[in-house]
Write a protein that binds this DNA or RNA. Sequence first.
DNA 1: AGATGATATCGAAACGTTTCGATTCAGTTT
DNA 2: AAACTGAATCGAAACGTTTCGATATCATCT
Lengths: 326, 326
Amino acid sequence: MASIKDIAKKAGVSISTVSYALNGSDKVTKETAAKILKIAEELHYVPHAAARLLKKQQSNLIGIFLTDFSGNFYGDLLQGVKEYLSGKGYDLLVCSGEKSRRLIPERMIDGAIVLDVTFSDKELLQYAEKGHKTVVLDRELLHPNVSQVLLDNKAGATLAMEYLLELGHDKIYAVTGPSGSYDANQRLRAVRQAAERAPHAQVIELQGDFGRASGEAAARVIADEYERPAAVFCLNDEMAVGAYRCFTSYTDLKIGEHIHLIGFDNIELAQFAIPRLATIDYSMRKWGAIASEQLLKMIAAQPVEAERIYVSLIKGESVGPSPSVK
Amino acid sequence: MASIKDIAKKAGVSISTVSYALNGSDKVTKETAAKILKIAEELHYVPHAAARLLKKQQSNLIGIFLTDFSGNFYGDLLQGVKEYLSGKGYDLLVCSGEKSRRLIPERMIDGAIVLDVTFSDKELLQYAEKGHKTVVLDRELLHPNVSQVLLDNKAGATLAMEYLLELGHDKIYAVTGPSGSYDANQRLRAVRQAAERAPHAQVIELQGDFGRASGEAAARVIADEYERPAAVFCLNDEMAVGAYRCFTSYTDLKIGEHIHLIGFDNIELAQFAIPRLATIDYSMRKWGAIASEQLLKMIAAQPVEAERIYVSLIKGESVGPSPSVK
DNA sequence: AGATGATATCGAAACGTTTCGATTCAGTTT
DNA sequence: AAACTGAATCGAAACGTTTCGATATCATCT
């Protein structure tokens, strides 16, 4: 493979001159630069990333760390990140699994975006302490080298609850998420606050884990004790999808009539469900873009402040008015 | 950041001794090694990836190149790759977009898995020529540094066609894929061959592009000229999903009764559709695992031979018998 | 006792860049 | 003509490793 050294030899100049020419420095004459560039082209020269990284201590690579690749969840988020970064000369590496974290201390990436509950706060702080820049998407973490872009979970859950209450529902099941999840906890808190503000309504919590199966299981419990129309707020869409499956296959309760269902996240599957699932929407793409923006700012040692991603209610036929107020 | 040099100084030994100790060489005594390891631990030493890569010319990083991150399509594939690789000490980088290809010539990754039609054969061959090892998933390419793991598209499309024909369908629409796609072309060829073998049946081709919208558009054409029950073979599920949308919202044709629908890929959305979409299934996970296996073999300069991923028919209520044979 | 060999350690080169400071060589000023 | 300036180029060090060959040390064999 051709290296800068080969170019230097062929051009009859020193290595440093080649380097300057290749980097567009104005220290070299136009003619020399042109000659060098031409030879580089001929030799199909491509700089060796490792050598450059070793010297410059920056790779122009950003890592995003996810719990797993499965599910449709991350597509738009990644797209948002990628779009933003590629405009700035950075490339994105999608990483998953404990082992890939080595990329951080090994200084392979210039910064990390983290959406992975299996990453402990402690570990993140440790990296931050060593100077690695990080944007977290699933927790709050106070450190000069860490910034956060969080969903407005509270607003979303409140929106969902108020929607149900306004339609006259007074028996509401809340299918919760894993207790280790920041988003799940935030949403649950908002549900409880809404419940307190509506003492006439009965709010029943059922434990879920954000997985589809847990939504299905919760739905089964609800179906088994069914007496009268009720509403179900699944704290994410994935569980709502599970609930759909149960209600349509296991019972003959009609969604949007006998049982009312609302989710959170507006995943693709939800958009496709029949009847349309009511849910809380937000822009994943924007989430990714803002996270990237913050990360690059931190890398450039510019000040950043935590941001929040706003959410909105999407109505759907999966929620109808309570028959009691008809 | 602590380097090997700092350890050497603190331990009072030479740099090379530290390197040997850290790499578990038996050239150093147990005691020296223990002392060095202890100091490395204290100093939170982590090797600098760039330095090591520069010297060893290998990163233990594999890149997988995808057209985009969107859609649910790749989840299991990535999972399969990751699982296989992480057992072998390799990490996976998921790359998308033209710019990220620089990682190959810059020697940042030890090998590449490619499932990205925007990659030209020419470009791939160029890399191969320079010694970069590649496994391609979406084309056939003859080069000692390239290996391929392909779907058995022909078998799948044949399976689907025969299923429809057996059920008595004699008017079959085939919604095709983009002409640049290897998979689309293979499937289409098999459709045409099946059509030739069944001269009594009428097979009508409609151009699609594997995108959901094109499936929806094709369905609209079909609906507009609808006279009698017909079957539709969408050459991938994504288009079948689009067709669902059209048939259920735009017409009152009942899927599986008035109009029969079969897809290819068995994507998650298809599994969830009501009625269940008939389709062609294969293991994405296995696809990824085999591709990784081949790549590592090539890197280790072991011989490999092209493999094929087998497919199977999944029946679903979206296809019923033709009323003409009832 | 001197030669031999094995073992543990070391020094230095190499990987491919970037970049600082030094050098050369015009052209300009006095 | 000597001294000075600035531009173009060069040499060498540095980034953090690995690894080859050399050296030092010590026990063993004759």
